[in-house]
């Protein structure tokens, strides 16, 4: 069996096991497991218009997950995608506020630049701390998520507050329609093109540049690349920056596209789902694209279940949680299963 095939198989087995566990849980909770899966599948892909909805969620998730994959490959467990996503959205919002009134062809690129820079900077400080003094990036990026969440609450209730807003949740002033890159359904040619460009760029970076090979070597054995003359901090810092920038890009898209404004605590699980996606896809770029569609489908089913099927959307959270649970088992348990299959084959 070739390595690629094994890793795809591994991802699949892994999802099937997680779904089986969910089935048991649903059944015990008094729902028909089959009925539940049926409704989920329908909500995700089979009802009319489902694909558009699923892609609407899948594309930003893919962009963030592709970035997460880059830093994981290089051996850095940057789990701060959520915070970097928020910072991207916040910086884009400030840029839009600042340039308000200027023509769209100036404002939109400037917002993208600001969003990606914001996300990258939010990954820069954990990266520097890690590479300068060995501070564990898991801790710093996790803390960064909380800080970014609070910052978001502050700016939406403070500097960017929409005075006409009356909801419980403070939110920023809406982005002028001229600057929006999609309607609130959230799928537009602009977003598709951006996601495609990210996919291409990341695939090239991982598979067709010296950086891709060296970062993956460094991720598996930093000592070895050091003996080859690599400046490990350069590889490391670039991967932090790329992953932050992509999360920031996804934040910008969510702000300028479907959401059109910032709200305190919006899309609170985006970054974590992206980490799941990257792990399930075994950090491959192509795999990430497919797995993103799957998780995008789940996200869209989560909205569909309570409204159309009268089922709790918590079902989707259970599925996500089960997959997350099995990720830790992945290396040991699923590999043993695969090895067993190989032996008896």
């Amino acid at each position: 069996m070739t390595g690629k095939f094994v890793s795809v198989l591994r991802g699949l087995i892994f999802i099937v096991i997680a779904l089986a566990l969910c089935g048991v849980i649903f059944q015990f909770a008094g729902y028909s497991a089959l009925g539940m899966f049926h409704s989920v599948a329908e909500g995700a892909f089979f009802r009319p218009g489902a694909w558009q909805q699923s892609l609407r969620w899948a594309l930003p998730l893919f962009i963030t997950a592709a970035g997460v994959g880059i830093s994981f490959r290089a051996g850095y467990f940057n789990i701060g995608a959520q915070g970097q996503f928020y910072l991207g959205a916040i910086c884009a919002a400030f840029m839009a506020e600042w340039l308000n009134g200027a023509p769209a062809f100036v404002v939109i690129p400037a917002c993208f630049a600001a969003g990606m820079t914001g996300g990258a900077l939010w990954a820069l400080w954990p990266g520097l701390l890690r590479l300068q003094s060995g501070t564990d990036e898991v801790i710093t990026t996790l803390m960064g998520n909380f800080l970014a969440g609070l910052l978001l609450v502050y700016v939406t209730a403070g500097p960017l507050k929409d005075p006409s807003g009356s909801g419980q949740q403070a939110s920023s002033r809406p982005l002028a329609a001229a600057y929006r890159i999609s309607d609130s359904l959230g799928l537009s040619p602009t977003i598709i093109v951006i996601a495609a460009l990210v996919a291409l760029a990341m695939w090239l970076l991982v598979n067709r540049t010296a950086f891709g090979v060296l970062a993956s070597l460094a991720g598996r054995n930093p000592t070895m690349v050091q003996w080859q003359g690599a400046t490990v901090w350069r590889l490391g810092l670039s991967s932090f920056l790329i992953s932050g920038a992509l999360a920031g890009l996804a934040g910008t898209i969510e702000f300028m596209g479907p959401n059109g404004r910032l709200a305190g605590g919006f899309l609170p699980t985006h970054g974590f789902t992206a980490i799941l996606i990257a792990l399930v896809a075994n950090l491959s770029v192509v795999g990430t694209a497919f797995v993103s569609v799957f998780f995008g489908g789940l996200a869209s089913a989560a909205l569909y279940l309570p409204i159309m099927a009268g089922l709790p959307s918590a079902a989707i959270e259970i599925i996500n949680a089960a997959i997350a649970l099995f990720i830790t088992a992945k290396s040991g348990f699923v590999d043993r299963l695969l090895a067993f299959g190989r032996r008896s084959a």
């Binding site: 090979v213 080859q228 350069r234």
Partner: peptide, 20 residues
Amino acid sequence: WENWSARELLQSRLLSAINP
């Protein structure tokens, strides 16, 4: 092949294209 190429790749620029 990654192990073998490391020395050469480090002599080129980080973003230089490779042909696996």
